[in-house]
Simulated assay, not measured.
Amino acid sequence: MPIHLPADLSRWWRLRTDVDPESPAGRTLADPNEPESRYASRIGADAWFATEGADRHEIIEHDYRSSDEEMVTIIGILDERMMS
């Protein structure tokens, strides 16, 4: 699964190595009958990042299926402090 992070973000933030089952992507991957959301979801950054303190930040996640077993996820950074 290719992952692309902006240089400023990747210096400080480590992605999780698993998909959080409570995230929209995790729920959709776990249940093939789960309908895709047409809207982005506001969730805790700890759903995608393993960095200490990630639970104090929120991100926006939007997913769509690219196949039965793959998702494309777009993560929007809401908190400017995550980029510095």
Rank of each mutant, 00 (worst) to 15 (best):
E52N: 03
I77S: 06
E22K: 09
L78S: 09
D63Y: 14
A7G: 13
A25K: 02
I3A: 09
D8T: 02
R81P: 10
A47N: 11
A7K: 15
R38D: 14
L29M: 03
T28P: 14
Y64Q: 03
D8P: 01
N33I: 00
D8W: 02
T17Q: 13
T17G: 09
D31S: 07
E70M: 09
A7S: 14
E70A: 08
N33A: 05
R11N: 05
M82D: 06
G26W: 06
H4Y: 15
P21D: 00
W12E: 10
M1R: 14
D18Q: 09
V19Y: 10
R42K: 12
E69S: 05
L78I: 10
T51V: 02
R27A: 04
W13Y: 00
E69I: 04
D8Q: 04
I3N: 13
W12S: 11
R14W: 03
R56M: 10
P24G: 01
D79I: 03
D31K: 04
I77Q: 07
A47Q: 12
M82L: 11
R16P: 07
R11H: 03
I3Y: 11
R16G: 00
R65Q: 08
E52H: 04
E36W: 06
D68N: 09
W13C: 01
R81W: 01
W48N: 09
A50F: 03
S37K: 15
E58Y: 11
E58D: 15
G44Y: 02
S67H: 08
G76Q: 01
E58K: 15
M1Y: 12
I60L: 15
R38V: 08
P35T: 12
D79Q: 10
A50H: 01
H62E: 10
M1G: 14
N33K: 06
R65A: 09
G76H: 09
P6F: 01
